[in-house]
Computed example of a mutant assay.
Amino acid sequence: MIEPFLEMMSAERGAAANTLASYRHDLEDADGYMRTRTGRPLQQAASADVASYLRALSGEGLAASSQARRLSALRQFFRFLYAEGVRGDDPTGPIASPKKARALPKHLSTDAVSRLLERARAEADADGAGANAVRAKRTRAVVELLYATGLRISELTGLPAALLGRAEPFFTIRGKGGKERLVPLSEAARAACLDYRQALDADPRAVDCPFLFPNETFGAPVARQVLARDLKALGARCGIAAAQLSPHVLRHAFATHLLQNGADLRVVQQLLGHADISTTQIYTHVLDERLHALVSAHHPLAAATRRH
């Protein structure tokens, strides 16, 4: 029944040649497995047989995304058999799609962040005036804030200018879902923001502007795309590829470097504003590395192994 299925996909759904070739490969592979394991063709497979086939693919190291593609082909095939009256059921119905592993977030090393901060500070402190000087100071303030706080870029652009009038080392931010959280404000980040605002206040329109980072007309916050563009340009000037750098990458660096230096996962969850700890658990690879290093450094057997 594989050939009639492929003919239907071509004639009725206009499937491209590459798509048909992919379906053929996946279905013939499954058919071969079924005949070898059960002695029956694919069209007679039971749910347990399909589940066994997927487990076999996983055991061979096939990626979850590729397993999901194979299962999708099987679903299409068995729905065709049901529609044609060849089968009275769909054995793929009870089968859950393989879950794709969550990609580890991109983050910068501490050395890369140090280079970024040093370049931002040098450019902000360079002699100059006008729009370019203000932009350099703004970029420094943005880098300092993102790395010191872990803010989302949308949260950063919405910060009020009144924030700098507070003496407290923390401020409150309203994040996703309207949830409020406390965010630390380092002295370096505060100093960078004050330096930027002092340069910006040379424009009379800035005096009554309520936004910490206004746009060119002072009528709204600066667009996050503008800040992202300036950040990538700064990164390029200190040897960091554009694909490796974004405001969100600095947020991930904030979390990763905290965990690498001993912070608790629950604390990082609160600082990032994650509603569920499962979201923060994308960083558990950092904890795994830290625990491995801890055991390797301090366990008596590990120490004995190093001596030998």
Rank of each mutant, 00 (worst) to 15 (best):
2 I>F: 08
7 E>S: 15
9 M>Q: 14
9 M>E: 13
14 G>Q: 06
14 G>I: 00
18 N>T: 10
18 N>Y: 13
19 T>Y: 14
32 G>K: 07
33 Y>D: 11
34 M>G: 08
34 M>Y: 02
34 M>I: 05
37 R>L: 04
39 G>S: 07
41 P>Q: 10
42 L>S: 04
45 A>I: 08
45 A>G: 04
46 A>D: 14
46 A>H: 12
50 V>F: 13
54 L>F: 09
56 A>F: 09
61 G>V: 03
63 A>Q: 14
63 A>I: 04
64 A>P: 03
68 A>L: 05
70 R>Y: 03
71 L>C: 03
74 L>I: 11
75 R>S: 14
76 Q>N: 15
78 F>N: 06
80 F>S: 10
80 F>Y: 15
80 F>C: 11
81 L>M: 13
84 E>G: 06
84 E>I: 00
85 G>D: 03
89 D>L: 10
89 D>A: 06
98 P>Q: 04
109 S>T: 03
114 S>D: 14
114 S>V: 01
116 L>D: 08
117 L>C: 06
119 R>F: 05
123 E>Q: 09
124 A>I: 05
126 A>H: 08
133 A>L: 09
136 A>F: 02
139 T>R: 04
141 A>K: 09
141 A>F: 06
143 V>R: 05
144 E>A: 05
145 L>H: 07
146 L>Q: 05
149 T>Q: 11
150 G>T: 01
154 S>F: 03
155 E>P: 02
155 E>I: 03
157 T>M: 05
166 R>H: 13
170 F>E: 15
170 F>A: 09
171 F>M: 09
176 K>H: 03
179 K>T: 04
179 K>C: 05
184 P>E: 14
184 P>C: 07
186 S>V: 03
188 A>E: 13
189 A>S: 05
189 A>V: 00
192 A>C: 10
193 C>H: 05
193 C>A: 15
196 Y>T: 00
196 Y>I: 01
198 Q>L: 11
199 A>F: 01
199 A>Y: 01
204 P>I: 08
205 R>N: 05
206 A>C: 07
210 P>M: 09
213 F>N: 12
213 F>G: 11
216 E>F: 14
218 F>C: 05
218 F>I: 00
219 G>I: 00
219 G>P: 02
221 P>C: 09
223 A>I: 02
223 A>N: 15
231 L>V: 00
232 K>F: 10
233 A>Y: 03
236 A>D: 11
242 A>G: 09
255 A>N: 05
255 A>F: 10
255 A>D: 08
256 T>C: 10
257 H>G: 01
258 L>M: 15
258 L>D: 10
261 N>Q: 12
265 L>K: 07
266 R>Q: 04
269 Q>T: 02
270 Q>R: 14
272 L>I: 02
272 L>C: 03
281 Q>M: 07
287 L>R: 04
292 H>F: 11
293 A>P: 01
295 V>G: 01
298 H>Y: 15
300 P>S: 05
301 L>H: 13
301 L>N: 07
304 A>F: 01
